[in-house]
């Protein structure tokens, strides 16, 4: 269990570093608990007003609850929401039935790539955490991507102490990861402390709830009776189930997450 105040300070420092060092920053928001926390941190970092766009990658396969939640929070918090879709792939009928890796890559990674190129984005704030996945545990705070969006995970640049460098030769953009040190329980404790809005899909209905939110066809709920944030925290203290076990990308095939991420997935 981490000291939430310490985590908050470090994350805000990183978010402000991104803002100070880059021209075109965006923050990704899936409407899930982690990226909603990232938005809350951005709001704190800038006096309640996020000074850059909030990007939602819409695969069109998200849960209806996610769209409702997205539009409600966007209005309440009043930020500049950019919804991004790979329209061409959708028109050609892209979907999970074509293969999960192909679909994730086209509807998420490719959609983001198009947006980044179009808007000359040079920094993307992403709310990934090290404890989510063995591959994410290898990430740096400032993590550059080349023009093909690739993550050179075998030759990452050194990142010394807390000196975060924006300069990266032929790199197109930098992924900024302000929440690497947070754990799943930390996020929920922060949600409770700050009274952050929570997508209803996280709470149990008929003995099931979602622990991690993705696209509807590729996400399954877990058995749970946790109906409140407190109950979720209690459940997590005891559980034996990995957080992303309900997400098809992680399990489907060996090293799928590694492949996806090396191609530019979050």
């Amino acid at each position: 269990m981490n000291d939430l105040k310490e985590l908050e300070k470090k994350s805000i420092y990183i978010i402000r570093e991104a803002y100070a060092q880059f021209k075109n920053v965006v923050v990704l928001w899936s409407t899930g608990k982690d990226s909603t926390t990232a938005l809350a941190l951005c709001r704190k970092a800038f006096d309640g007003k996020i000074p850059f766009p909030v990007v939602h990658i819409d695969t069109s396969y998200k849960f209806p609850e996610m769209y409702e939640f997205r539009d409600r929070i966007a209005k309440e918090w009043g930020f500049d929401l950019h919804v991004v879709r790979n329209e061409e792939a959708l028109r050609k009928g892209m979907g999970p039935h074509k293969g999960k890796l192909v679909c994730c890559n086209a509807l998420k990674t490719e959609a983001l790539k198009q947006y980044i190129l179009r808007n000359k984005v040079d920094a993307v704030i992403v709310a990934i955490r090290r404890d989510e996945h063995g591959i994410r545990a290898k990430e740096r705070v400032f993590s550059p991507r080349d023009e093909n969006f690739r993550w050179a995970y075998k030759e990452q640049e050194p990142e010394m102490w807390d000196i975060y460098l924006s300069q990266s030769k032929d790199k197109t953009h930098v992924r900024v990861h302000p929440m690497l040190e947070w754990t799943e329980i930390d996020v929920w404790r922060y949600v409770r402390k700050e009274n952050l809005p929570v997508n209803p899909l996280y709470f149990a209905r008929n003995g099931k709830r979602y622990r991690s939110l993705g696209c509807q066809p590729c996400t399954v709920p877990i058995e749970s009776n946790a109906k409140t944030v407190d109950e979720i925290i209690e459940e997590l203290k005891k559980t034996d189930i990995p957080e992303r076990s309900g997400r098809a990308q992680d399990k489907e095939r060996a090293y799928m997450m590694q492949k996806l991420r090396s191609l530019g997935y979050m």
Partner: peptide
């Protein structure tokens, strides 16, 4: 060693965090 290359090559390539 979570990377495929690390497991198949029997050596660590990049740092790993664990608790």
């Amino acid at each position: 060693d979570t990377l495929q290359e690390e497991r198949e090559g029997h050596m660590t390539i990049d740092i790993m965090h664990t608790w």
